[in-house]
Design a protein around this nucleic acid. Structure first.
Lengths: 244, 244
DNA sequence: CGCCGTGTTGAAGTGCATCAAGCCATGTGG
DNA sequence: CCACATGGCTTGATGCACTTCAACACGGCG
């Protein structure tokens, strides 16, 4: 199993043992590269492996009511299809947002390792629980906020998640997002997305040019978005000590 | 661990062994009753137990942008706070929709049993993955559909989930939902919810009087909602055989 | 009885979608 | 090197889905 970021995260989340860490590091994997728009997995497929995002971004998406809805965005260190270990069929399309690199680990190999370590099983289980927690935030976001707060919240979340793997210092990060993709994740049209971005610029909350996104006046932005990073700070939490 | 429905479901989902089944049945639990609106767990709490819904309905909710957003609805057989095993802090409020009964099992007891059975660990893990899958459907629903399709989809989902525990035959089920609660889950106002229900009645798709909800012309309804129960049919799927 | 929760209805306002067009940078082929 | 296509951003005009406010009807209940 590759990527120091994933291992570091599992460590932070669940405090895995030295032994387990070694097992992860010994896992065989293969690297795959994707270009913008490439499809990593299709709905209906039954993958025989899971992947870890090494660099770049993936998104999970599907056509709903003639609109492309993005249900998740995955950043380096994430395992977008970890659930296929237990639910064999891909529910939605997995797509590379810009260029990306992933590491692929076979199910059988993963199962072997997990069968031999309750600690790792729990660590991976927790990973999927954090994803569920993120989904609940998205439900709140789409159900209750209007465009400005919605976009602000999503950007805050992405910045926070990138921060925890060292890809966002302070307030700016690099990502190949288009306004269209963020619009599809926020459930609004591209046109209105554009107007919302302009409003955020006008208020001095955002600088987004090309592939660099900068969150300005971050506390104001987070207040506007009602963003509370607690749901992500299961990372680095002191709770890990009392867990098992 | 109580409730035949939960055990039957775990069995169907993951094909647990006779041994594991016995372990579940031997778990000690206590029963709690709640009335409409009672709060089962508060945000910020660190419960020392998990619960199983025995009868009635719970919902997970939170105030977002001055609106109460319902993020999940739990039916008999569900474990609304299973995630507290790994993520100690409740993120949102858990609330009884009508009258309800739950069984409470302590974390320590659950952990003991899970530590002794990889099969059960995987079965419970799968439960949380199904919840995540339901959350993704909600994201699609809130992000892409307008009111009519949204309400239709939610009602189809609830009927299907109730069906899998024998609480919905054919097309009608009993539930203490108000239009207001479904509105809060669908991210629309009560007024518009009411008009949407009337439109569904007008089209002969729905009969909802008091606590009895009847889905009429179900195939038309499911088509309108683009409802595909596959995401719930991990239940009773043949895939369980090739799983582990 | 009077109250309260739920459902229902109308009127007015708004956040957002949709359509349509134009802009700019980048890339590609003749 | 220009002609042209392409993808992303931007802008204006129009329409609609939905919200909000306000009022009323109905039944259950203390």
């Amino acid at each position: 199993m590759p990527h120091r970021k994933l291992i570091a995260r599992l460590q932070a989340i669940s405090g895995i043992s030295h032994d387990d860490r070694a097992k992860l590091e010994r896992m065989p994997y293969t690297i795959k590269n994707f270009a913008k728009g490439d499809i990593v997995a299709r709905p209906g497929e039954r993958p025989l492996s899971c992947c870890v995002v090494l660099s770049g971004f993936l998104c999970r998406q599907r056509i709903v009511a003639s609109r492309n809805q993005v249900t998740s965005i995955y950043v380096p260190g994430d395992m977008p299809d970890l659930h296929t270990l237990h639910m064999p069929v891909m529910d939605r399309e997995l797509c590379s947002v810009g260029d990306s690199t992933i590491a692929v680990v076979t199910h059988s190999c993963l199962r072997n390792v997990l069968a031999g370590s309750a600690g790792l099983t729990n660590a991976f289980w927790r990973e999927t629980l954090i994803q569920a927690e993120i989904h609940r935030e998205w439900v709140d976001n789409l159900g209750s906020r209007e465009a400005l707060g919605r976009v602000a919240h999503l950007l805050c979340e992405i910045a926070a998640r990138l921060g925890s793997v060292g890809l966002c210092k302070e307030k700016s990060f690099v990502a190949p997002f288009t306004q269209g993709i963020i619009a599809q994740a926020c459930g609004i049209s591209v046109v209105h997305m554009n107007r919302t971005v302009q409003e955020m610029r006008r208020q001095g909350l955002l600088d987004w040019r090309g592939h660099t996104i900068e969150l300005l006046r971050r506390t104001d932005l987070e207040e506007l978005a009602e963003f509370n990073p607690a749901y992500l700070h299961v990372l680095n939490s002191p709770e890990k000590l009392v867990l098992l």
